[in-house]
Design a protein around this nucleic acid. Structure first.
Length: 263
DNA sequence: TATGTATCCTGTCGGC
DNA sequence: TGCCGACAGGATACAT
């Protein structure tokens, strides 16, 4: 499930591969989710950027191809175009064929003008590892909603790029129960610091591979070996030793420590 | 406008 | 061994 660290790892590897290259052939799965992949034939790639969990490919006609990897999306060189999970592919003028594999088809591809986004991209909060992500702005945004903190984080509005794994990790590190609806300024500061910490470490580790995630080289990340909370229910809390618990918050599996993360 | 819920998808796993 | 249902979850459409 690619979140910010996984998408950033992919972006860093794709940038030198694609910039300056032109698409000479391409095709896609007939689903409307993936059809826009066919629209960039003949175009050149000028940049590979990221916003939250979205990859933004700058094209030489001034538009951007936006790819969200969903749950199981992968971008990597391919040779077998009969792969049943291949949803789109682009052949470049250096014989590279970049494939978009997506087993569950939760991802999507679209073409749009830069900074003229809709949906989540339009309402997305600041990049968590940038100077734009401040405690004041973060606390102010959280105060505007009465939804549970984890739900707010997953909405991408208070901050970009946080998914289920890093929401659990950050709440655990901050000692905040993910189901609370209001945070004090001090709690917001702790959560702000924790989000930046867990994402920074995950980027350094090349992302978290639990099942499907691999980078452009087909290699798994290593951050799964450093998770302190997500997916560790029934295992002892690394702080207090109590068994971690599992619950469901807004239809998302959630791991927490009932002792360290008080409601 | 804010909030909550259903839906899309398919591989995996556990129960029978 | 094989079948079947539950489950995983990000974004979005829809209902309240």
């Amino acid at each position: 499930m690619p979140e910010l660290p996984e998408v950033e790892s992919i972006r860093r590897q794709l940038e030198p591969l694609l910039c300056g290259r032109h698409v000479i052939r391409c095709d896609s799965h007939p689903s409307v989710k993936f059809l826009p992949a066919r629209e960039i034939i003949g175009m050149g790639f000028e940049s590979v950027n990221r916003r939250g969990k979205y990859l933004l490919f700058g094209l030489d006609d001034g538009n951007e191809m936006v790819i969200h990897l969903g749950m199981t999306g992968q971008l990597l060189p391919v040779s077998d175009l009969s792969d049943p999970h291949l949803r789109a592919w682009w052949e470049f003028d250096n014989e590279l064929i970049l494939g978009y594999r997506d087993i569950r088809r939760f991802g999507r591809i679209r073409i749009c003008k830069p900074n003229q986004y809709d949906g989540t991209l339009k309402t997305m909060g600041p990049e968590p590892l940038s100077d734009d992500f401040t405690v004041e702005q973060f606390h102010s945004t959280l105060k505007k909603s009465s939804r549970k903190i984890k739900t707010q984080l997953l909405s991408q509005r208070p901050v970009a790029g946080v998914g289920n794994i890093y929401a659990d990790e950050a709440c655990f590190r901050a000692g905040i129960y993910p189901g609370v609806r209001r945070l004090t300024k001090a709690q917001a500061r702790d959560l702000h610091e924790s989000i930046r910490y867990v994402l920074s470490i995950a980027v350094e580790n090349g992302g978290t591979t639990l099942r499907d995630y691999v980078n452009v080289e087909g290699k798994e990340g290593t951050n799964q070996h450093f998770l302190t909370c997500y997916g560790r229910w029934d295992q002892p809390c690394l702080n207090c030793g109590e068994p971690l618990r599992r619950t469901v918050i807004d239809n998302r599996g959630t791991t927490f420590c009932g002792n360290c993360q008080r409601r």
